[in-house]
Computed example of a mutant assay.
Amino acid sequence: MRSAFFLQLALFALLALAFTEQTSTGAEAGASAPRVTVANPIAKTIDVWDEYTGRFEALKQVQVRARVSGTLDKINFTDGQFVKEGDLLFVIDPRPFQIAVESAKADVTKARAQVALASTDAVRAEQLAASRTITSREVDQRNANLEVTKAQQLAAEAALRNAELNLEWTQVRAPISGRVSDRRVDAGNLIEGGQTGATLLTTIVTLDPIHFVFDASEADYLRYARLSAQGQRPSSRDVKNPVVVRLADESEWKHMGVMDFVDNQLNARSGTIRGRAIFQNKDLFLLPGTFGHLRLFGGNVAAMLIPDSAIVSDQASKTVFTVTPENKISVKPVQLGQIHEGLRVVLAGLNPNDRIVIDGIANPFVRAGALVAPQDGVIIAVSN
């Protein structure tokens, strides 16, 4: 029994020794600093492109309405086709207006006859007055009658022109060139014309060129204004600054345009100002109402370039791990910009001498204040 006791005691001692050696080895491994790759950011002056969202709008949009009332006789276009200015779109029954023209012509003929008669009477009155056959009052009366008939002739001629104009308006023509929408009224319907309450027949929009409208923040407006005042970036009111647009299904910024308008005031409710760019649209691919992302040239800025993988998201903020001279991790919040030459632009938060952790961030031991073993690396930009 005593031998068995000493045997168990010896086994226990061996197990304790093995556990102590394993614990010591784990502690040494845990105490070793994790390796990370560090590099200095690339300092470079780059062109800044501010990004906005907006929609395309037609330069011109016209609601086609008739100027006279009547029965719609004909529709001379196919829904959605491209029309030119002056093309005949709708025909209103012209017969009532033709009758009005004939009646107005008769009134003009009558007025001219009355003018001729009154003119003859006035001449005779002058002759009779010379021989004292009639009084001066009668001469004045006949001259007055002549002027009245001349005025009646002018009124009749004006009524004729109005009747002819109404007859012309029975042919509703395209006021602009562009793509027409669908017909809103079918032939055979009675439509209303005039300046108010006229029936909407269709709409036409121009497509080439086309506008892109967006809203910029008050902060952006103030930055642009100060850059303009300092001579660093011309105002889009004075110079057609370049812009590019990417559509919702596109990954590249392929649509090139220029600025052509900045509004004269900020929206007091939204704190934004409206801007507008213009694009060529020869293939008529871009349609009014199409959503897109726009980049506007925002001037030159001195920035730092780092890999996108070196950025750590911390809730609403973006941070970068740097290594101090004591080889400890320091966390720096940064202000990010666009992607340039394959790298992320850092507008604020870094300096050229910072050693940025570009590899090894995924290691759970790499955190603020942790001791690390840095290895030198290089950040390489990719030319566009």
Rank of each mutant, 00 (worst) to 15 (best):
M1V: 02
F5A: 08
A10M: 12
F12V: 09
L14I: 08
A18M: 08
T20P: 03
T23C: 06
E28R: 07
A31D: 10
T37H: 11
I46Y: 00
Y52N: 04
E57H: 10
A66S: 15
A66K: 11
R67F: 09
T71A: 07
G86I: 01
L88G: 02
A100R: 08
Q114N: 14
L117E: 14
D121Y: 10
E126W: 01
A129C: 04
E138G: 00
R142F: 03
A155I: 15
A156V: 10
E157D: 15
A158V: 05
T170S: 01
V180G: 01
D182I: 05
V185D: 03
V185T: 08
D186R: 05
A187L: 03
L190M: 11
L190S: 12
G194R: 13
G194I: 13
T196M: 11
L201G: 04
I204F: 05
P209S: 08
D215K: 13
S217W: 05
L222W: 02
Y224E: 02
G231K: 03
N241T: 13
R246C: 12
W253G: 04
D260G: 05
D263Q: 02
N264M: 11
Q265G: 11
S270Q: 15
G271M: 12
R276P: 07
I278M: 09
L284A: 12
F285I: 15
L287S: 05
P288N: 00
G292E: 07
R295I: 06
L296D: 05
N300T: 13
I306Y: 02
S309I: 07
Q315K: 08
T319P: 00
T324Q: 09
P325R: 08
L336F: 00
E341Q: 15
V346G: 12
L350H: 10
P364N: 13
P364I: 09
R367T: 14
G369Q: 12
A373I: 07
S383C: 01
N384W: 03
